[in-house]
Amino acid sequence: MREYPDAKIDCQMANIRLIARLDIKGPNLIKGVNLEGVRVVGDPQEFARRYYEAGIDELIYMDAVASLYDRNSLDAIVRHTAENVFVPVTVGGGIRSLDDVGRMLRSGADKLAINTAAIRRPALITEVARRFGAQCMVLSIEAKRTAPGRWEAYTDNGREKTGIDAVAWAKQGVELGAGELLVTSVDQEGTRRGFDVKLLRAIADAVSIPMIASGGLGAPEHLVAAVREGGADAVAMADVLHYGRLSLSAIRDAARSAGLSVRQP
């Protein structure tokens, strides 16, 4: 494993959170590459339960095609999850209105990850934070590299360009009331080649709310880099867990031996 002798950590916050990200299409858990080319992995419920038992810190459900079809089919899955999974659940994909947020919270979601609807109407961020609390307003940013040190925010699960600078948007989102950021690198997603650490660092330097890194984890050192170099507070994992390439306990042990503090379930 690499070492980071020069890395600076602001100071120890909470434990680094290990999050399983479950992308959903209809009733199925799916996985793609660069948020595209999806294939069915299995029953999300089964995976959620298994990750809970292995000591996952949080779950993210992302409806992969919700924006595309203007619908959200996650209610039932989330409601079911709340029966036997007792860790925080974030739901994203197709959340468009305060009504959608209220409905998902009543279904058992703790936080909502909003991307497309917030870009279309940034005031939604403020409205959600005021009505339901900033803690449940997770601004989801899907960023694609356009030049060295520059990223563009995408919508609709990485399909649509916006022309908006991802770092500036993160900053604006925080000013509008977001309580947390979910930063997904469209370039790295599903590649297992590691997070876009420069993107994470640029955003971490611009804001002071917790940030979840998403997209690209293939090995434990990617997690360490996201935290040490990127300033992430949490990492979302998909492929690596869904296909059993690494166990959660192996990831946890590796993080700990690299000096990161993680929860011992």
Binding site: D10, M13, A14, R17, D57, G179, S208, P210, D233, R263
Partner: peptide, 9 residues
Amino acid sequence: RRKIPHVGW
């Protein structure tokens, strides 16, 4: 600086 909110375990 301390990140606010305090989110996590």
